[in-house]
Design a protein around this nucleic acid. Structure first.
Lengths: 344, 344
DNA sequence: TTGAAAGCGCTACCAA
DNA sequence: TTGGTAGCGCTTTCAA
């Protein structure tokens, strides 16, 4: 590599400034326009082969990397799809979904960016997102209101998609009705002849979004059947589970829906330690259909949750971006089906 | 809210273009400079109260949101910390770490952005990141080479921090030596008198980064002790586990290190189904110290992994940004300590 | 106290 | 085939 002294020799190692397309142009002995044409392979303009080579050479030499912000400022739009990173670590299901989504959007030439929205709430957050001028925003959870949607659209977002329990005015919605999960679980327990049913409600902050609808769904399934629901707050610790198990006899429950498979494992373990027989004394059903449920003994009945495919969501986003005028679509995308195993 | 007809009435709903600071200035009857002063609370300039009010009013009226790209283009720098999103969903440990990091960097007034790096590899990826001109880049895993570091620094990144098994020339490194995990596990098994030790190696793609060093660490711990290691490839399915369990007798192992707690649960379940007694016939140790290990019977021995605190990493990033000239720091940050329970 | 204007890096139009 | 140049939205001197 050749040493190019582009700054006057000085004792202090002057931090070489970031090369711009003008630098490339200078080194290649062409105009900035030509540089742009060459590096972007602009088909409307034909540049001679020697010139192309010189430009590429110069760009390589300088380690030139185009400035995305400048580019999209000039272009008036970007292909950035913004997605606030969920504050609480959701399970593997959601992780896989995100990955699939990123991949699918990548195929459509969008760039997915997860924005760390810690300690920023609601419409405040929407403003922060809007500053980045994303072409689309995908919002998991229930944090976004109609105001937020307006802010985002005003700032140029051509598609806003919510991914959660309710649809929001003006935004596309992928309705993930967690109530269906609770409904399926409770209906299953009822069909197994159980009538005194506990529902575990995690005490962990941030889980209410999921746990509340699951509880409500269970309630709903049993309405008018004569079966009774007992709400069971439970922290995700052995001690809390042991305490709950200790008063299990007093509760007089013949079944329990444990919010998800992990809480199921927690509670099953505690119950088994205190001699409660599963499913004879108490039936247990979880949710999420994680691998661990299949590994428990007795094998755990669960509610399998079908998330939308990342590809479908990507397609929805793309459609919305291409045709921002269209009416917001609303899809119910959460499939809940019981997987009966040995624990019920 | 008052309806402001700012576009001539037309049949087609002309997409109102996004308001700029010039629009705000126009509506408030001031110059763009004044708008900037007011909205940024510039302390060097005093603006009269009535003017301030008019500007704020106009901004609210129009739903003005500043354009981050334009701002940082003008400023010549941003406070964006870029972090490629890991391609494979890592466990809850890592999730918590990321969250803590985001929070801590947020406190320092950085904006954390996770960039979806699907299907982009190595130095190609580094170029893509560099286009965003982040002030700092945090790279988990082993994907970044010295070339990539150079590209990032050339493009203005004041700090590059790798988070993985090896340090990279020119970048700060938080060394997470997975070998220590395998070492601790194997040493523990050896101290329990086990001599024929199996090591599970997940077949899932993307896990080699972790599994290989863990295996090597185990090998290393037993070098010269006369104990033998058997490599056990295993896919994360019940069937694969059952197949492995079926030939357990032939393998003649008296202990197994299962890569992590989840594989431990998988294998333990299969072994117990075939009548292998744990720990009498075979001792089992996992890693990651997940809750599920405490819930298994027998309770699972494991290797507790101490990740660096998000706050510490945030501090390192901030230090590096403030003083980009300083020599790269390298810290070993992965603590591995055995938590002996009933399975060994 | 406020305004005019330059310029950050880039692309696309129009001229040469 | 190539170059000049306007302008994307913003901040920040320098003048008024």
């Amino acid at each position: 590599m050749v040493q190019i002294p582009n700054t006057p020799p000085s004792a202090s190692p002057a931090p070489r400034s970031v090369p711009t397309s003008a630098d490339v142009a200078r080194l290649a002995g062409v105009s900035r326009a030509t540089v742009s044409y060459v590096l972007n392979n602009t088909s409307a303009v034909r540049i001679s082969e020697p010139t192309r080579r010189r430009v590429h050479e110069a760009a390589r030499e300088l380690g030139y990397v185009p400035h995305a912000a400048a580019r999209s400022l000039r272009a008036g739009h970007s292909r950035m799809v913004l997605m606030p990173a969920p504050a609480i670590p959701i399970g593997p299901l959601y992780g896989r979904f995100i990955n699939e989504l990123q991949w699918a959007l990548g195929r459509l030439d969008y760039t997915v960016v997860q924005y760390g929205t810690v300690a920023v709430q609601g419409d405040e957050a929407a403003r922060a997102w809007a500053e980045l001028r994303p072409v689309a925003v995908i919002v998991p959870g229930a944090g976004l209101g109609p105001q937020g949607v307006t802010v985002l659209k005003r700032s140029g977002a051509r598609a806003v998609v919510t991914l959660g329990p309710a649809s929001v005015e003006g935004a596309h919605a992928l309705l993930m009705d967690q109530a269906a999960v609770g409904h399926a679980a409770a209906a299953h327990l009822h069909s197994r002849g159980r009538r005194r049913i506990g529902v575990v409600v995690p005490e962990e902050a941030g889980l209410e979004t999921f746990s509340r609808p699951r509880l409500d769904g269970a309630r709903d399934a049993l309405r008018g059947t004569g079966a009774a629901i007992t709400e069971l707050p439970l922290a995700y610790t052995e001690e809390a589970a042991a305490r709950l198990a200790a008063r299990w006899g007093d509760l007089g429950l013949d079944a329990v829906f444990t919010y998800n498979d992990e809480y199921a494992m927690l509670l099953m373990s505690a119950l088994q330690d205190t001699g409660v027989r599963i499913p004879e004394d108490t039936a247990v059903i979880g949710a999420d259909d994680l691998m661990l449920g299949r590994l428990l003994r007795p094998r755990l009945s669960t509610v399998h949750i079908e998330l939308p495919s990342g590809r479908d969501l990507a397609a929805l986003v793309d459609r919305a971006v291409r045709n921002p005028g269209a009416a917001p679509e609303t899809h119910r995308v959460l499939g809940a089906s019981v997987v009966p195993r040995e624990s019920t």
